[in-house]
């Protein structure tokens, strides 16, 4: 584990000073894909000596279609449940071979992280392996056609949680992924959103400095799965933070820290009703969603360090 003073405060990364090299380019992701923004930006921060691992999922499906290889750095598709362990193997193998100056990064979606990959991720953090894990959360299994995952929020219509007379779509709330990860006493974990790209890239940069496991949960909109126009990908991902349905936070040195504490939340209804997946919500559903949000914020504001 890193002690507080070993985490260096790195130089702030901006669009101006970041590398012009594109590492994720020519991929076949849907137009306006939020996951691509998350992967592309992270790789621009971690750089060309990144060893990237992707489980079966959107980014694997769109980036490695032989002979169209969309990663300029070393990258690999892993088993679906095993991205954390396979990436660990890369990192540990590189160490055993005496390689120097590299960063291993595992990228997985919400299903690959919070459901099928959770066990391997827990093992990776437990072992203290030296790698960064980024979960790009588009709130359902998008690659297979929009099925519910453990991070699909209440009320979402997916192809396995249809909304109808008897069901509101998804009946459960998002798993508390960030706190599950923090509970491992990881050196660094953060939440981010592609709607706040500056915040996100600097969290990636911070995680890059950690010698050991680090984790970022980044909210990444999906026009195809959410029923939103392709041009509002960033707008939606910003708005979700402003409504309080997602939050920007860090876990460091054993402490939770909110990075953004809006005085007033933007309208949930206005935000969700723009998305096809929430079109069916009733006032009762909005009440449930609002109550859940308020409970979460009450707890965060009470126990977490505020900005």
């Amino acid at each position: 584990m890193n002690s507080p003073d070993t985490i260096l405060a790195p130089k702030r990364i901006t669009a101006k000073n970041m590398t012009e090299k594109e590492f994720f380019y020519g991929h076949k992701a849907c137009a306006g894909c939020g996951g691509s923004v998350a992967v592309r930006l992270a790789l621009k921060v971690t750089g060309e000596r990144t060893l990237a691992a992707f489980p079966a999922g959107c980014m694997a499906a769109v980036g490695f279609i032989y002979p169209q290889m969309a990663f300029q750095n070393n990258a690999i598709i892993t088993t679906f449940p095993g991205v954390a362990s396979m990436a660990s193997g890369i990192s540990v193998g590189a160490k055993a071979l005496g390689l120097k100056d590299y960063k291993t990064v595992a990228f997985a979606g919400d299903g690959g992280t919070a459901d099928i990959g959770l066990q391997a991720l827990s093992g990776m953090i437990d072992r203290g392996d030296d790698l960064m894990y980024i979960c790009y959360d588009n709130e359902a299994y998008m690659n297979t056609g929009i099925q519910k995952s453990g991070l699909t929020p209440y009320g979402t219509q997916t192809t396995t949680t249809p909304a109808g007379k008897n069901l509101p779509g998804t009946k459960t709330h998002k798993k508390n992924l960030f706190e599950i990860i923090a509970a491992h006493d990881i050196a660094y974990a953060a939440t981010a959103s592609i709607g706040y790209p500056q915040d996100y890239i600097n969290k990636v940069n911070k995680a890059k400095q950690i010698k050991g496991p680090s984790f970022i949960h980044v909210y990444a909109s999906c026009p195809t799965g959410w029923g939103t126009p392709t041009n509002t990908t960033i707008e939606i991902a910003k708005e979700v933070v402003d409504t309080g349905l997602f939050f920007l936070a860090e876990y460091e040195n054993g402490e939770f820290k909110l990075n953004k504490n809006p005085k007033e939340f933007k309208s949930i209804k206005n935000h969700l009703s723009k998305q096809g997946r929430f079109k069916h919500l009733t006032d009762n559903d909005y009440d449930i969603i609002t109550k859940q949000r308020d409970m979460k914020w009450e707890r965060m504001r009470k126990f977490w360090t505020l900005p």
Binding site: F24, Y25, H27, A31, R40, L41, P197
Partner: peptide, 8 residues
């Protein structure tokens, strides 16, 4: 725009 372009 440079920052948020999904395709770089």
């Amino acid at each position: 725009c440079y920052l948020v372009c999904p395709d770089g």
